[in-house]
Structure formats: structure tokens, C-alpha cells
Amino acid sequence: MKILHILNDGPTDLSSKIIGTQSKEHEVKVIELSKKGSYESLIDEIFSHDKVVSW
């Protein structure tokens, strides 16, 4: 499964732990909102992943 994590306010200990564990079984991508590039590219990422998690 392709999972996108969007970090609204940067990484936290909890998000890092969960993403690290999840990465062992799934294809995981992490985007920090402040370093997202364009909004259009973020929309494409959101719809090209099976699940999206906001932090």
C-alpha cells in the first residue's frame, strides 16, 4: 500500500516512530507541509497514494 504522511508542523517523535515502523511493510512517502513544493504537486501526491495521514 502507498501511504502519504503530511507533516503540518514538522516531524515529531511519535510521527517518526510510526512512519519508521510502517515503512517496513508499506511504501511510505513523507512530505513536510512547509517544504511541499507547489500546491499542485501536493494534490497529485495526495491522489496518487492509497492513504493519506495528516500530522
Binding site: 503540518n8 507547489s38 500546491y39 499542485e40 494534490i43 497529485d44 491522489f47
Partner: peptide, 29 residues
């Protein structure tokens, strides 16, 4: 496709606007 945005903080107004306009420009609701 349809994008839902739950806005439960007031910290990301520019992102709400930017993402919404970008999604609409790409034909999403």
C-alpha cells in the same frame, strides 16, 4: 475525485486556500 479538508486549527490558512485552488484547477471537487 473529491478532496476533504478538515480545518481544526487556524495555523494553515494559506495552505487551505492554496490546496483548494490547486485541487479545483486540476478538476477535483
Amino acid at each position: 475525485m473529491k478532496l476533504g479538508i478538515l480545518v481544526n486549527t487556524d495555523r494553515h490558512a494559506n495552505d487551505v486556500v492554496g490546496l483548494t485552488k490547486a485541487a479545483v484547477s486540476k478538476g477535483h471537487e
